[in-house]
């Protein structure tokens, strides 16, 4: 159940918690009509990786990209995260993404595919050859048959905004959490946090 796969694990841990919560207040798990109450921003499901990423980011920078309509064999990229939109249907030359089935590059006329992002750096080469590196925590990549590409991340930040020492700090915190984790659920959560923190440190040093 606790595979070290990002999203499945994330959702499954939440699921596991929900069951625990329901179980502890005496509501049978299989009861269909369960009322779910939650408070905003409670610590019930501490999505550690978000905190890790946020800790690593010390400043934010506003960027604007001109819109351009895609034509023929061009590749229109939509790259958005919960916190910000990086590209909106903009034509780019190449995109490199890290996924659970291995990192791969996307060029125009790539075969349509779906993939799940793993924590790492997405590199976008724009039409004028300018490279931008953006760190993503998790998400999905869709390449459609019309060569349009959607990269949807849970949270993403440009690499230059990531503070290495903050990332290092987050990594050690996550590691200590992993070693002190008592149950399987906490362990799985901490393992994700460590994985993300490791990737941030790697990205920030590289």
């Amino acid at each position: 159940m606790f595979q070290r796969r990002y999203l499945a694990t994330m959702l499954r841990t939440v699921i596991c918690q929900k069951k625990l919560v329901l179980g502890s207040c005496g509501v049978p798990k299989d009861r269909i009509c369960n009322y779910i109450f939650w408070t905003k921003r409670n610590t019930l499901s501490k999505m550690a990786f978000r905190g890790v990423l946020r800790m690593g980011v010390r400043k934010l920078q506003v960027r604007n990209f001109a819109d351009a309509a895609p034509k023929g064999d061009e590749m229109a990229l939509t790259f958005a995260a919960g916190n910000k939109v990086f590209y909106d249907k903009q034509v780019v030359r190449q995109i490199d993404v890290p996924s659970f089935s291995g990192a791969f590059g996307i060029l125009p006329k790539h075969v349509p595919t779906l993939a799940v992002l793993r924590p790492g750096v997405v590199t976008v080469v724009e039409n004028d050859g300018k490279q931008s590196k953006i760190f993503v925590s998790s998400g999905t990549v869709t390449v459609n048959d019309d060569s349009s590409v959607q990269v949807l991340a849970e949270e993403a930040h440009p690499l230059e905004n990531i503070d290495r020492s903050a990332a290092q700090e987050a990594l050690s915190k996550a590691q200590s959490e992993l070693s002190s984790a008592s149950n399987e659920k906490a362990k799985a959560e901490a393992a994700i946090a460590v994985e993300v923190a490791e990737e941030i440190v790697k990205a920030a040093s590289g």
Binding site: L11, D30, I32, G82
Partner: peptide, 30 residues
């Protein structure tokens, strides 16, 4: 009605809220 979520609307929605809701939808048993 199989489940109800509340505490919505006081603060702007975040991705975390959506993730919790998604988890609730997937575990609703329906």
């Amino acid at each position: 009605i199989i489940s109800v979520a509340n505490e919505i609307g006081r603060l702007p929605p975040t991705f975390q809220d959506a993730a919790k809701l998604a988890a609730a939808v997937l575990t609703s048993g329906y």
